[in-house]
């Protein structure tokens, strides 16, 4: 149902790396789960609307009043690497 090649493609999309010996077991596990999920294909869903939110709500915008945000120092405090003004990451060009 999902083969090793697809597993490697999905892993790349998800920014995960799989050891070579883990690729086929992951394909097998996902196939087993997808096989169960596949059972819902037997349902006739023509004309059935999708549910995105079970309790519909409208007009949920709050009043547009500015509140004090986290200070820069606090916002940066949990970053693995940062400068005084921003998050520090490896160069995308590296």
């Amino acid at each position: 149902m999902i083969d090793a090649k697809q597993v490697l493609h999905v892993a790349r999309l998800a920014r995960l790396e799989l050891a070579p010996e883990d690729v086929q077991p992951m394909a097998d596990e996902l196939s087993s789960i997808l096989g169960h999920i596949e059972k819902m294909s037997s349902l006739d869903l023509d004309g059935v609307e999708p549910t995105t939110h079970v309790v519909p709500v409208e007009g949920v915008l709050r009043p547009d009043v500015a509140e004090p945000p986290l200070t820069r120092e606090v916002a940066l405090s949990q970053a693995p690497k940062h400068t005084e003004t921003g998050f520090l990451v490896p160069s995308p060009q590296a």
Partner: peptide, 15 residues
């Protein structure tokens, strides 16, 4: 469509 979209419709049936 075959996965997430379908699951959202099944959700409607459950509701």
């Amino acid at each position: 469509d075959a996965s997430y979209g379908r699951a959202q419709r099944v959700r409607t049936k459950i509701v």
